[in-house]
Amino acid sequence: MTVTAQSARAARWPAVRPWLGVAARLGLAAVWLLAGGSKVGDLAASGRAVNAYQVMPYDAATVIGAALPFVELALGALLLLGLATRLAAGVSAALLVVFIAGIASAWSRGLSIDCGCFGSGGQLAEGQAPSYLPEILRDLGFLALAGFLLIWPRTPVSVDGWLTGDAGVEDEDE
């Protein structure tokens, strides 16, 4: 708890940052667990959602659609534990960039689909218009969380912290 002891004297940012990091990590973990959990029960629908973007052959879309929910759940678990946080944040950021690009491309091609982000199988409910802009803004928000963790991956209460010892306490091993 050296971090909190120092914080009394130090500027506020160094004291607040680790806890912002925890919030970002757990927030992003929740996003992935929800996204994966909502799709994992119907993998065929997940494949249809990928196929609805019309960017790859149907068979490729079903493979991606089947694999994606499990990868999302695994990312969520890694972030929840705080294991390999920087790597998990990097993969999260990459996935989110792909999602944003996909939604933007569906929008620009005038497709009328749901993003399928949280398990809708890609089809819009009756009378529902596509909401591409809110979906993109939401994903940009998630991307910001991932970006924060890419820059400052060390957060309290994480397996990373436990594995490498508390940063800044150099002689702890003695």
Partner: peptide, 16 residues
């Protein structure tokens, strides 16, 4: 972590 992610993807594919 990479192994976990890859295995997760393979599990999804094989389940499907």
């Amino acid at each position: 972590a990479v192994a976990v992610l890859v295995i997760a993807g393979l599990i999804g594919w094989s389940v499907f």
